[in-house]
Amino acid sequence: MHVLVRGAGVAGLTLAHELLEQGAKVTVFDLLPDSSGSASWLAGGMLAPWCERESAEEPVLTLGRLAADWWENALPGHVVRNGTLVVAPPRDAGELGRFAARTSGFEEIAGERIAALEPDLDGRFRRGLFFAGEAHLDPRRALLALRKKLGARGVAFLCGGKEPAGADRIADCTGIASAAPALRGVRGEMLVLETPDISLSRPVRLLHPRIPVYIVPRDGNRFMVGATMIESEDDGPVTARSMMELLNAAYGLHPAFAEAKIVETGVGVRPAYADNLPRVTRTAEGVSVNGLYRHGFLLSPAMAQEAAAMILQEKRQYA
C-alpha cells in the first residue's frame, strides 16, 4: 500500500508516521520545501487538554490526553512534562474561578507554590491553577525532527510542481488550503519575544476577561506569545491592536517583558469545522484529516491513528 500524504503540517507528518509504523509506503507532498507554510509552524505546542476544555468540547480532552505519550514515543526527548500554570491579574481574579469551574485536572495553588514552580513570578500572583498532567513541546523542532526521522526511514518528501501520481490512496492534510466546503479559517496572530531576564519552565496562561493569552517558553531565552482568535481568513500581517494586546499580556505577566526583543511576528489561518473539532473523513481518493483548529499538536496523534486505521482497513477489505 502506497499512500500519498498531501500537506507537511502536523496533521500530515503525524499521519505519515502512523502509516509508516503500520507498514505502509509513504510519500509526503507539499508546496513548500519545509513545513513553514502550515498553521502548525506557528503553533504554541501546548499539550494541554485539560486547560483547553475550558472552551472546547469533551473530545478535546478524551482524544488529547494521549498526545504527550504519542509525541514522546515518536520523538523521545521533545516533550517537556512540567504542567501548565494558570494565573490572573489581581483585578481579574474572578476569572480563575470561572476557568476552574469549567476544567478539571488542576490544583488550586497559592503564591508560595507559584514561586516554587516559577521563581521569576515570585510575588506577582497570589492564586493560580496548576495543571500538573500537561506538557509542551517546541512545534518547529518537533516538525523538523519528524521530517528527519521519516526521511531516514524511507519516506520521500516532494515539493512543488505536479503532484506525484501512482499512490494507491491519498490522504489530504492541507488544512485551510484544502478549501473543503464546511471548513472555515480562524486567524491567529503570535509573537516571539526574546529576553534573558526571565525564565519559565512551563506554559503560563494569563486569564483576562477579553484577551486571554498564553506564553510558552522556548529554547534560547525565547517565548512564544499567542494567540488571537479572529473569524477571518485574512493572513496579512499582525495588526497593531493584536500586537498591543499580546504585548500587554506579556507585560502583565512580568514587566521585564517590556525590555524583550520582538524577534518574530506570525499570522496563520487555522482550519476549523463549525464545532471546532477535527474530523477524519473518507474521500473518493482516500481520506481527509482536517479541522484541527487550535489543537494541531494535541489532536493530530488521535486523528492520525484514526485515519491510518481507515486507510489500512480499506486495504484489508480489498484484499
Partner: peptide, 16 residues
Amino acid sequence: RRETAGGRTGGQFWEL
C-alpha cells in the same frame, strides 16, 4: 470590527 481585518473576511463564519 475584528472579523474584517483585511479584505478576506470571515465569509464562512458569516455564512453560518
